[in-house]
């Protein structure tokens, strides 16, 4: 690849060697491959060094991931082999006891349910915000709003957690009682008492990912070519029909990946959940009851007093979280890729 421009590069070579800081002067650092362009020029060597430097960085990234995976798996297997319960189905979490008994079932359940409820609340609202900013709001207002949403998306999760704990949780009591009163016949909303529940955690997560999903969706909608919007309007579409015909189909892959990013953030969120949830290990469909825990929150809460096995157990649960988020990401890519044929890329 790099041999092509070499001969023409001869003229520039002395200048290049003089002004460059170090690499070109020492003769054979990259070893064998340099010999291929043997007598041509020292510039070829410099090119080769630079190329290999970037390549090493790339391979270093792969190595980093390999090390991460190996290490987590090694630490996890130690703990898993000492486990007297079934790691996937046990609800209890006593990794520090002897014999240790722990399972990821309860925290995985909490992770999935709280993230799912957060998505149900946040995604439609986020799409609404994005549509409002890109289609409905007047020009000046929309650029200001876009800026504000971007800033809100950058607010750290610990701030949302703090707000959820101190401000939101007390206010959520009424709405949870009301849901229990009127929708208690649905097992989901049935509860003996209400408090800092999975539902409250979900609402905090929803508010946290709302600006993230909205900011990304807004960017996607902004990219819908004016030509498509005008084509729909010229056919006699109302504003909503224009959105349905031109904006949403074009933006769908982008909204899906934005939502998946939000889902990933919600599932991996540690601090906001750790601050809100009471950390109990049980699986219950009553999401208004003050109970529940997530994998990430459990790691944050539990690692301080964990012994060797306990840390391994937490790492094992972290691996489960990693795998679940990876599955979500791969699914999102598959959905986006499947729609590519009909996306705007051909236009």
């Amino acid at each position: 690849m790099t041999t092509e421009p070499d001969s023409s590069a001869d003229a520039a070579e002395p200048r290049g060697a003089a002004s460059a800081t170090a690499p070109p002067t020492d003769p054979p650092p990259a070893g064998g491959p340099a010999a291929a362009s043997s007598g041509k020029a020292r510039v070829g060597v410099a090119d080769l060094i630079f190329k290999n430097l970037t390549r090493t960085a790339g391979i270093g990234l792969l190595a980093l991931i390999a090390v991460i995976a190996t290490f987590l798996v090694l630490r996890a297997t130690d703990a898993l082999s000492a486990n007297t319960g079934n790691f996937l189905t046990t609800e209890e979490w006593f990794p520090n006891a002897s014999p240790p008994k722990f399972g990821v079932a309860a925290t995985l359940y909490g992770t999935v349910v709280s993230a799912a409820v957060a998505m149900i609340i946040a995604v439609p609202v986020a799409v609404g915000i994005a549509l409002f900013i890109t289609v409905y709001a007047p020009r000046q207002l929309s650029s200001i709003l876009g800026y504000i949403v971007d800033l809100l998306a950058a607010v750290p999760s610990v701030v949302y957690g703090l707000w959820g704990l101190i401000v939101l949780a007390p206010h959520m009591k009424g709405i949870q009682l009301w849901l229990n009163d009127y929708f208690g016949w649905i097992p989901l909303f049935d509860a003996d008492s209400v408090g800092r529940s999975l539902f409250v955690a979900s609402v905090v997560l929803a508010i946290m990912i709302l600006p993230i999903v909205a900011a990304l969706s807004r960017e996607v909608f902004l990219q819908v070519p004016i030509a498509h919007r005008e084509a729909a309007l010229a056919l006699g579409a109302t504003r909503w029909e224009m959105i349905r015909v031109a904006v949403l189909p074009y933006g769908k892959p982008g909204v899906i990946s934005a939502s998946m990013l939000g889902l990933g953030r919600a599932m991996g969120e540690t601090i906001a959940v750790a601050l809100v949830l009471p950390a109990s290990f049980n699986i219950s469909e009553h999401i208004l009851s003050p109970a529940g825990n997530t994998i990430a929150a459990n790691v944050a809460n539990g690692w301080g007093e964990a012994n060797d096995i306990g840390r391994g157990a937490l790492i094992a649960s972290g691996l489960v979280l990693f795998i679940v988020t990876m599955i979500v990401n791969i699914l999102a890519r598959a959905i986006v890729a499947r729609r590519r044929e009909f996306s705007g890329s051909a236009a």
Binding site: F71, R75, M267, G268, T270, A300, G318, F322, T325
Partner: peptide, 16 residues
């Protein structure tokens, strides 16, 4: 894959 890595996993890895 790294983009979707939950931040606590990065912490766990460096811890381990």
């Amino acid at each position: 894959v790294l983009t979707g890595l939950p931040s606590i996993i990065a912490g766990l890895f460096i811890l381990a």
